[in-house]
Amino acid sequence: MNLIAPLGHALWMAFAMLWEILWPLILGFGLSAVVQAVVSKSEMTRLLPDDSPRSLAIACGLGAASSSCSYAAVALARSIFRKGANFTAALAFQLASTNLVAELTIIIIVLMGWQFAAAEFVGGPLMVVLMALLLKRFLSRELVAQARTQANKGLKGKMEGHAEMDMSVTEGSLWQRVTSNDGFTATSHYFVMDWAAVWKDIAGGLLIAGAVAAWVPPDFWKEFFLVSHPVAAK
C-alpha cells in the first residue's frame, strides 16, 4: 500500500493552513508582546483589586492582549492573584486569555468571517459574567483563603517562569515605553516566549487538521452535521 501520496497530501494541507494563519499569528503575538512589554505584572495587580464590573472589564481587556497559551494564562492568573489581585478578576483574566485573545480573533476572522469573531466577543464576556455571578453566590472567603494559601506554596508548573518574568518598561509615556530600546527588547522577548509556549500545540493541531482534511471525505461531514436533515439543517 502506497502511503507516500496520502501523507504528502496531509502535509500539504497542513502547510496550506499554516500559510493562511501565519500572518494573523504573527500580528496577534506582536500586539500581545507590545502590551506585555508596557504593562507590568504589578500594574495588572493594582488594576484588579476587586470583582466590580470595572475590574472584570479591565481583566478581560488585559487577558485579550496577553499570551494565548492556556498554561501561561493559568500561571499568570496565579501570579497576579498571589500578588494581591482579586480572585474572581484573576479568573476573568484567565478566561479572556484563552477565549478573547487577539491572535485567535484575527484567525477566526480570516478563516470563518467576522460574524464568528463577533460571536466570540459576545460569548467570551458572557462566560465571564456568568462565572462572576456564580462565584459571588457560591465562593466563600474561606475557599479564597485556601486558594491563596495553595498559590503561595509556589508549586512550579510548566509556564511558571513565563508568568514570574517581568521585563515590562514602566518609565515614560506609553509611546516612549514602546519605542525605547528596553521596550523593543522586552517586546521581542515576549514575542519569542509566546511562540515557544504554543508552537507544539499549533504544530500538532495543524498536522491533525491536515490529516482530517486530506483523509476524511466531504460526505462524512455532511452526514455528521446533518446537512440533508429536513429539520436539523435549518
Rank of each mutant, 00 (worst) to 15 (best):
N2E: 12
N2K: 11
L3M: 12
L18W: 13
E20I: 04
L22M: 15
W23S: 06
P24W: 09
I26W: 08
L27H: 00
L27W: 12
G28K: 03
F29W: 05
G30R: 01
L31I: 13
S32D: 00
V35G: 01
V38R: 06
V39I: 15
S40I: 01
S42G: 07
E43Q: 14
T45H: 01
R46V: 12
L47S: 11
L47V: 09
L47P: 04
L47R: 15
L47H: 09
L48K: 07
P49F: 09
D50A: 08
P53S: 04
R54A: 07
S55R: 14
L62G: 06
L62Q: 07
S66C: 04
Y71L: 10
A72D: 04
A72E: 05
V74E: 04
L76Y: 09
R78M: 12
R78Q: 11
R78G: 07
R78C: 05
S79F: 08
I80S: 05
R82Q: 15
G84V: 04
F87D: 09
A89M: 08
A89W: 09
Q94D: 12
Q94M: 14
A96F: 10
S97C: 15
L100F: 11
A102R: 03
L104R: 05
I106C: 01
I106D: 05
L111N: 03
L111H: 07
L111E: 05
L111P: 02
M112R: 10
W114R: 05
W114I: 15
Q115C: 07
E120R: 10
V122M: 07
G123N: 10
P125T: 06
V128F: 11
M131S: 04
L133N: 02
L134M: 13
R137P: 04
F138C: 14
L139D: 09
L139P: 08
L139W: 11
S140I: 05
A145G: 03
Q146V: 08
Q146H: 10
R148N: 08
R148T: 04
T149N: 06
T149H: 14
A151N: 10
K153Q: 13
L155K: 12
G157S: 02
K158I: 10
K158C: 11
G161T: 04
G161D: 10
A163R: 05
A163K: 02
M165V: 04
M167G: 01
M167I: 06
S168H: 00
V169H: 00
E171W: 02
G172D: 05
G172R: 03
L174N: 03
L174F: 13
R177T: 02
T179H: 01
G183M: 00
T185E: 08
T185H: 13
A186E: 05
A186W: 01
A186L: 02
T187H: 01
H189G: 00
H189C: 03
Y190H: 09
Y190F: 15
D194F: 15
A197V: 02
V198T: 09
W199S: 01
K200Q: 14
G204W: 02
G205P: 03
G205F: 01
L206A: 02
L206P: 03
L207G: 08
A214W: 00
P217S: 05
D219A: 15
E223Q: 14
L226Y: 07
V227S: 13
H229D: 13
A233Q: 12
